[in-house]
Design a protein around this nucleic acid. Structure first.
Length: 419
DNA sequence: TCTGGGGTCCTAGGACCC
DNA sequence: TCTGGGGTCCTAGGACCC
């Protein structure tokens, strides 16, 4: 039997900000999504004031004023660096770690001989001490149950942030106090369907017949219910699977109409996406580009996507930009106001196992060029050298009015201690 | 005025084949 | 009016996650 731990950072982005700005401690604080759109992280104080997850800023601007809520733009360089530090501490401490998201890790605790609660508390203390990030820990026989345990750990002050459901007499109680909508794998649509049928709690859900669940929720629903019953259906993966797609997209700070500005944005996105897959030693055989008018506007919408084949499969910025810009030209229509755009790289495969066609013509200079490109940007800093017009000032830049420093990833951002 | 970004998996249905 | 039956493969879209 496997024992799973789930370590989840509390209000992760807010906690990262607090590490470097202790004045935020105890004050209602939120972090906004890119373009300063919605609240994507809320301190407990902000939650208590009624700020909802993913709520647009303009909808609670009054609350911000009334209660002096501290508002920050997202600083993903900082968060992903802090995330790596947390994962590192866990990896040094637990037998095996699987990073699940920027703020969550599953642990394989099989074989741990000491008391699980004690082990959880030790992890909590160590992560807090070494990184400054507070975490909660849930422990159980399946990942889905570990998620339940973690959820309870967050809600219940008594737990001190650590809950163990392994062979626990409280398991049934735990499932009875967990709402169906809080179960991992049950989202908005399924919650509606379940509630309509009188299924309100995780326990209710667990007691539904398999046939009904399969019919209403497919094989995914079946997996979830079995996991709740204690049957391990997902398993532990210490080696992450290579990703299959990558996406770089942004909402624009202002509406954009001209093809030049869109070309600039698409060039920047394609550059980032290509760098992304080069780092992972992957190549793509399809690039897809999309543009969108404002989807919240009452005016008619236009949101086309165009895929362009790359042959041979590549991670070369030059080829990827060329394909993306070609796609953009095919879908761009004059006279529309665009609010968002993006570049996707699809069908990613390992660069060493890339399919090669008989008719592909490879230019050895391309390879040298991209190596030099990466080297210059590594030595001189990101964006020192660019393809096309990617380095020019642009009219589409996303809003980011309240961003903190890149404390841990840029020389200029390192905090200074004044004597 | 203002509304995120980045992923995964599953399924239904069409195209195509014999 | 009537209109094979299966297979496979691909894609779009819907559900979920953080």
């Amino acid at each position: 039997m496997t024992v799973y731990g789930l370590v989840d950072c509390n209000n992760f982005y807010v906690s990262c900000e607090r590490v470097f700005n202790p004045k935020l401690e105890g004050r209602p604080t939120i972090v906004l999504s890119s373009n300063d759109g919605c609240a994507i992280a809320r301190s407990s104080e902000a939650k208590a004031l009624g700020v909802k997850m993913a709520q647009p800023l303009y909808q609670f601007a009054d609350l911000v004023k009334q209660h002096d809520i501290q508002v920050l733009s997202a600083n993903f360089h900082l968060y992903s660096d802090m995330s790596n530090r947390v994962v590192q501490v866990l990896a040094d401490t637990a037998p095996s770690v699987q990073q699940y998201s920027i703020d969550e890790c599953f642990l394989d605790l099989t074989g741990i001989t000491e008391d699980f609660i004690d082990f959880g508390r030790m992890l909590q203390t160590k992560v807090l001490q070494w990184t400054g990030i507070p975490v909660g820990v849930g422990i159980a026989e399946t990942k889905t149950l570990a998620k339940v345990a973690n959820h309870i750990a967050k809600e219940s002050a008594k737990s001190g942030g650590v809950v163990n459901l392994v062979e626990s007499p409280w398991k049934t109680k735990a499932l009875a106090i967990t709402q169906a909508r809080d179960v991992w794998g049950i989202g908005k649509q399924f919650t509606k369907k379940l509630n309509r049928n009188g299924v309100m709690t995780a326990l209710d859900f667990m007691n539904q017949p398999d046939g009904w669940i399969k019919k209403e929720m497919g094989v995914g629903g079946l997996k979830t219910v079995r996991e709740l019953r204690g049957e391990d259906c997902i398993g532990f993966e210490s080696i992450p699977k290579p990703k299959q797609t990558t996406l770089v997209s942004r909402s624009f700070g202002h509406e954009v109409t001209d093809l030049d500005s869109l070309t600039n944005a698409i060039t920047v996105f394609a550059t980032t996406a290509a760098e992304d897959i080069r780092k992972a030693s992957l190549v793509s055989s399809t690039v897809a580009v999309f543009i969108e008018t404002n989807r919240f506007s009452s005016e008619s919408q236009y949101a086309p996507t165009r895929s362009v084949d790359l042959s041979p499969a590549t991670n070369n910025t030059k080829h990827i930009i060329r394909a993306a810009v070609q796609g953009l030209k095919e879908i761009h229509r004059d006279g529309l106001k665009y609010k968002k755009a993006g570049v996707m790289l699809l069908d990613l495969v390992d660069a060493d196992h890339a399919p090669v066609s008989l008719f592909d013509q490879l230019d050895p200079k391309d390879d040298q060029l991209i190596k030099a490109f990466d080297q210059i940007n590594r030595q001189q800093g990101p964006g020192s050298i660019n393809f096309g017009n990617a380095g020019l000032p642009s009219s589409w830049q996303s809003n980011s009015a309240y961003r903190s420093s890149r404390y841990t990833t840029e020389w200029g951002g390192i905090p200074v201690v004044k004597a």
